[in-house]
């Protein structure tokens, strides 16, 4: 019996070792452990073994079954590992991926949203006003003299009914104060229009971001802190910011803001206008509202505005402003 078992073991292990695929391994299993397999039938012979020999023979057979089963399992594991490896061997990960390309947001939208997010962190809400404005909202209420050149039909688009296309988003300041009592703390992104010939640096329609903060005791120091924070958020902590005295009819004192930063090319660049709201603007609002909540003796405020096109052009080194409105996909897909 011992010899028979030993012979069967070496025969089975040899056959298993020779099996190089799943099919031959399965036939080896069937040959020894199947219903009519050699080990199975040997086990069935246990019935005829005398009682006193059964423990010994039983152990022999169990060892044999265990050895063959282990060999089968090991071999199967090897085969699986080999076939797994083989599966990856043919996988060429350098082939280009095939997810459909996403679209893009226009560079001006992206820039505007960055600016909006930053001002929102500082507690500004968005305000809005119409592109088609009255002369009162666009000029009169903003302390602009009746014969100021900006009102000229050469410079500003008019409608036959006397309304106009706003030449700056500053008209939104007036819209907001007209309807909302102080404090107001708003930004207003939107279009403005100038009757310019379109060329590499001019569009007749352009995008501005306006801001206004009016409350009790708002000071030039608040204006400075707010805009310095904003521009350093936008362009980095190392950004140089200079406020240069300037003139706007609707703010006093007025400043232009010059920025110098590596992301904008490292040159000083005139970027924004700002100032403390002129008392004459508050007076115009009081007269229109019929109350004194914007009495310049009670409230003060600052306003600012800047154009997005030139900023986008400098940020991305866009050589011609018209690229921003031509919507060439070769351009848009770069953002």
């Amino acid at each position: 019996m011992q010899q028979q078992v030993d012979a069967l073991r070496s025969e089975a292990l040899e056959l298993i070792a020779l099996a190089h695929d799943a099919d031959s391994l399965e036939s080896a299993r069937l040959k020894y452990l199947g219903k009519s397999g050699a080990i199975t039938s040997l086990s069935e012979g246990m019935r005829n073994v005398p009682k006193e020999e059964r423990p010994f023979i039983g152990k022999l057979l169990n060892d044999l079954r265990a050895a063959v089963t282990t060999a089968l399992e090991d071999s199967q594991k090897c085969l699986l590992e080999a076939s797994d490896l083989a599966a990856f061997a043919s996988l060429d990960l350098t082939l280009p991926g095939t997810c459909p390309a996403p679209g893009t947001l226009h560079p001006l939208t992206q820039l505007m949203d960055r600016a909006v997010c930053c001002f929102r962190r500082m507690g500004f809400a968005i305000a809005d006003g119409p592109d088609i404005e009255t002369e009162w909202h666009c000029f009169d209420a903003l302390n602009t003299l009746p014969d100021h050149p900006a009102r000229n039909e050469l410079d500003t688009f008019y409608l036959p009914d006397g309304r106009l296309l706003r030449s700056h988003t500053s008209s939104v300041q007036i819209r907001v104060m007209e309807t909302t009592p102080p404090p107001v703390r708003i930004i207003a992104p939107g279009s403005a229009y100038r009757r310019d010939e379109v060329d590499a640096t001019h569009l007749a329609q352009f995008t501005q971001m306006e801001g206004l903060y009016v409350a009790e005791k708002v000071s030039l120091a608040d204006l400075k802190g707010t805009l310095e924070f904003f521009f350093r958020e936008l362009f980095g902590a190392g950004t140089d910011i200079q406020f240069r005295p300037h003139f706007f009819p609707f703010t006093e004192p007025s400043y232009e803001i010059d920025i110098r930063t590596q992301v904008l090319g490292g040159e000083w660049m005139e970027l924004a206008g700002c100032g403390m709201v002129d008392p004459a603007v508050f007076e115009a609002i009081c007269e229109r509202r019929g109350d004194r909540v914007y009495d310049p003796e009670k409230v003060s405020g600052f306003a600012f505005g800047f154009g997005l096109e030139r900023l986008a052009m400098n940020l991305s080194r866009i050589p011609d402003i018209r690229m921003l409105v031509e919507n060439d996909l070769r351009f848009l897909k770069q953002f």
């Binding site: 893009t104 409105v325 996909l329």
Partner: peptide
Amino acid sequence: HEARTSTL
């Protein structure tokens, strides 16, 4: 892809 065209 987002475009921005003139209002005029």
